[in-house]
Simulated assay, not measured.
Amino acid sequence: MPHSLILNLLPQSPIYPQFLTGRHYHALFLTLVSSVDPALGEYLHNSKADKAFTLSPLQIQQRTKPDHYSLQLSHQKPIPAGTPCWWRVSLLDDTLFSKLTPLWLNLNPEHPWHLGSANLYITSIQGTPQSIQPWANACSYAQLYEQASESDRALNFLFATPVAFRQGTYDTFLPTRECIFNSLLSRWQKYSGIELSNISFDSIYPSCFNINTEIVRNYDSKFIGCIGEIGYRILGEIEPNTIKQINALADFALYAGIGRKTTMGMGMVRRR
């Protein structure tokens, strides 16, 4: 069962920009995992395979309805102590979620966690959507599939953090239908337990887009990705079951993310 969880955080000391990178977010998550299951934390640290979680960049909490078009990717100035922040963690399988259940159930709002040199308190965790927080949700794979439309031909995505895809030995930043839906299908087949057989993406065509490239920096390296909005339509005489399967994958994007480096804040996507 995939979960999209919002961890509400309160820094007790300034968080400096050099610690607000994908690698530091990845390290913080592994610290959380290791606090309840050291062996699992070590396994996730060493594993080179596709991992059953995604992370967002750290966001400063807004009291009004947020701009849904993008998230803050980097910070030029330190985040001051006492600034309410949030951080999205999505989990793609029940095993990982159940391993972390003791952490959620026994959350100590006075236990400090570390992001670089800063101390953070986790004040609460959201797992259901709210009007000012559209990134929180939970839904079983069976529900995702059953609720997927057999008639909706519009597939509109928001790329909230940069999306990139690996092709051979190089990266590509253009979100073609093959890149997007093969990325989603790969993660669906790995974690859902629901086989999508004989699915084809040949009927999917771009209908609109407003996209740009964006650079993400980590230490001395950098990655380039695509950010913005893109829409596709399913065209032609297509079986309802095929439309349903494609819609299930599009709905799954909220949890799975798309493309590379999703465990370091890239590829954070949701359907609009």
Rank of each mutant, 00 (worst) to 15 (best):
I215F: 04
P57N: 11
L120V: 01
Q167R: 14
I6C: 04
P206K: 11
K190F: 05
R166N: 12
S124R: 13
A138D: 03
L55T: 08
S200E: 14
L103W: 15
N212A: 11
K261E: 02
D171F: 09
I132D: 14
M268K: 12
N137G: 09
T169I: 10
D202S: 13
S221L: 13
W113N: 06
S90H: 09
A138T: 04
S4H: 09
Q18C: 07
G267W: 01
F53I: 11
K99T: 10
L144I: 09
S4P: 08
L100E: 06
P78H: 02
S56D: 04
I125T: 00
H26F: 09
P240A: 02
P2G: 09
F223Q: 15
L120H: 03
Q12F: 08
L196A: 10
T128I: 06
S117K: 09
E195S: 11
P84W: 03
I180F: 01
Y141T: 04
N156P: 02
I246P: 08
D202R: 14
V163I: 04
L71V: 12
A253D: 09
S131C: 06
E42K: 11
R23G: 14
A250T: 06
F252I: 01
L120K: 01
P17I: 12
P38W: 07
L155E: 06
D152S: 10
G231A: 08
R166W: 05
W104Q: 12
T242P: 11
Q12R: 13
T128W: 05
W188F: 02
S197T: 13
E178W: 05
S151E: 14
Y255G: 05
Q72F: 04
K65C: 10
Q61S: 10
V89D: 07
V216F: 07
L9S: 01
D251C: 11
Y255N: 08
L44S: 05
D67R: 15
L235R: 10
P11Q: 01
Y232M: 06
A142E: 15
F209W: 10
S56R: 04
G193P: 00
I122G: 05
T262F: 02
S70D: 15
H111N: 10
L28I: 12
Y25F: 15
N119D: 12
T176W: 04
I230S: 00
T101R: 14
H75E: 05
Y255I: 06
